[in-house]
Nucleic acid binder design. Structure first.
Lengths: 146, 146
DNA sequence: CTGAAATAATTCGAATACGAACTATTCGCG
DNA sequence: CGCGAATAGTTCGTATTCGAATTATTTCAG
């Protein structure tokens, strides 16, 4: 009778959906998709990353990332360069246009940023820390690592 | 500097991915996909549901559900009947084959059920309740409803 | 130093996943 | 009653999403 476990599962699905809907709003406003925006943001935090490392960071298969990077390169938002150290590898960088697009998506209008801000101001610091700790605990169990 | 908000967001993404990977294992073992398994389970809990209601329950667009139901009907796992009350609507039901498939997916081998069980036995009851309450709080803020 | 194993990325096929456009039916206001 | 608005599903086009197969390169054991 896994009632609590299943409730937790549905709860996670609902929050994830709510977050994705907010991301989609910002992304659509500037004419790109959710994943494309997530990738632009990730590249802004970590330049010069390899494709497989990006896939691992985002918890996605490299085939998914490869296709999306292809479209971002076509749109001239990302630059894909062959790696100097390893000729099999490519390294990824934001173009100027990509940086501008990211700025435009996450500007003052961004509902996602407003709502995340609201989460931080509404919940007590200890509540957020408790939430993160419990979620980490759940994830560890789900991965069968404990 | 939405550090905590973003951490919370990534945390949710990671748990959702872990859950989906477990669901995929059970689904693949019996030859169907994640969403197909989720739909079979949902129909087992609520028979005679309409397509749009199912889509709303799963937080998905009706076009996504429509296509997947089409494949489930082709595989003879789901029965789609025109509604008696509303000639625009269809009602959905598990077939016997669908019930068997569901049983087979969620049997003793199911890693998902084992891990959910482990979450329940590992975390204290208050911890789970705290987690669900905090997640609900976060979701309400994200939806802009408070 | 060389061939087999491992690794980085791409490509492929099938199934989501969405919004928009469309068809068929029902609702509801005047 | 009767017609415009709303609703239930389907279809379409584009973009994920995955695992498996493939190509190119690097690593490493003998």
């Amino acid at each position: 009778m896994e009632t609590f476990g299943r409730e937790m599962m549905y709860s996670v699905f609902r929050i994830r959906k709510a977050l994705y809907t907010l991301i989609r709003e910002d992304a659509t406003r500037v004419g790109i998709t959710e994943l494309q925006l997530i990738i632009l943001y990730t590249l802004s935090k970590k330049d010069n990353i390899r494709l497989n490392d990006l896939a691992e960071k985002l918890n996605m298969s490299n085939s998914t990332i490869s296709g999306t990077i292809e479209r971002l390169v076509s749109a001239e938002l990302v630059i894909r360069k062959p790696s100097k150290e390893d000729r099999r590898a490519v390294t990824l960088h934001l173009s100027e246009k990509g940086k501008e697009k990211l700025q435009e998506a996450f500007n003052d209008e961004s509902l996602l940023l407003q709502r995340l801000q609201k989460v931080e101001t509404t919940l007590a610091k200890e509540e957020i820390e408790t939430l993160l700790a419990l979620q980490q605990k759940v994830r560890t169990i789900l991965l069968g690592e404990e």
